[in-house]
């Protein structure tokens, strides 16, 4: 197991391929017959307005959810069919940064990052120290290692979460809404960080986001989801110029602010007030 840390060469991850995936929750179809492939070594962005199933799509790839129909293949194995032990094996290959960071609030920053290592490897304390410190250095928080999560700012918490996600040197990184709720400066810091980690650690990165501006900068491939279907895919430049009205609505809606707010269906205002 330690070889993974000694060898400089990281093996190329097999791509994840989703075929004809349908997923519904409480009778509502969230994903409808989706087929996409995640190429190795690229930064992939899954985009779309809130509530279109972006995070669901990610959870299918991490094995948290199982599709009703269809397959999610990784290295020739169908992830939904894996036993819980092989699923845990698969998850050693991936790192996930959740939207809420999900730091353990009773553990220090250092222990949070050390957690996956302590759980899976019996490392000597000084070796573990240096591994964790190196990862914390990568996100610029080596000197914050004794703080506890409640003492961190939003951006710092996110970076700790990132350090914890990469501590096992995953071959695929998933980011769920990495920029949501961050101030503009932090957002660019995070963007640079994600790009740098992607290249230095030779990973495949999958981002779920709705921030068009950020993704134009970062992503190699963009998929746009709307109402459970892929409506556009390709390089950011091509996708963001797509003439498809749904794509235009998403891309322009975000750059122009909310032009037309969608009302929750029901009575009209006149009916409601003067009945």
């Amino acid at each position: 197991m330690l070889n993974k840390y000694r060898s400089s060469e990281v093996k190329k991850p097999g791509p994840i391929t989703l075929e004809n995936v349908t997923f519904s929750r409480s009778g509502r179809k969230i994903l409808d017959n989706i087929s996409i492939s995640i190429p190795s070594g690229k930064i992939i962005a899954i985009m779309g307005p809130s509530g279109t199933g972006k995070s669901t799509l990610m959870k299918l790839m991490t094995g948290e959810l199982k599709p009703d129909v269809g397959s999610v293949m990784f290295n020739g194995k169908n992830i939904p069919d894996l036993s819980s032990r092989s699923l845990y094996e698969y998850r050693k290959e991936i790192g996930v940064m959740l939207q809420s960071n999900a730091l353990f609030n009773e553990l220090s920053v250092f222990e949070n990052v050390a957690f996956p290592l302590r759980e899976h490897f019996e490392l000597k304390e000084d070796f573990l120290q240096s591994l964790v410190k190196l990862k914390l250095e990568k996100v610029g928080l080596r000197n914050a290692c004794d703080l506890i999560p409640s003492e961190l700012s939003g951006g710092m918490a996110r970076r700790v979460s990132l350090a914890r996600a990469i501590v096992r040197d995953p071959s695929i990184m998933f980011y769920d809404e990495p920029f949501t709720g961050q101030d503009p400066i932090t957002r660019w810091v995070l963007l640079e960080l994600i790009r740098r980690l992607h290249t230095t650690l030779n990973m495949t990165s999958v981002l779920v986001s709705h921030q068009v501006e950020m993704m134009t900068q970062l992503a190699d491939v963009v998929y746009i989801l709307s109402e459970g279907k892929i409506i556009s895919s390709g390089t950011p430049k091509a996708v963001f110029k797509d003439k498809n009205p749904l794509v235009r609505k998403f891309v322009d809606g975000y750059s122009d602010g909310s032009k037309d707010m969608i009302h929750h269906p029901g009575q009209s205002l006149v009916e409601d007030l003067f009945k």
């Binding site: 948290e64 845990y88 094996e89 998850r91 959740l98 939207q99 609030n105 996956p116 899976h120």
Partner: peptide, 14 residues
């Protein structure tokens, strides 16, 4: 609430 169980599962910890 803070997705700590989910994140443990994702770190292959039950």
């Amino acid at each position: 609430t803070s997705e700590q169980f989910a994140s443990m599962e994702l770190m292959s910890v039950d």
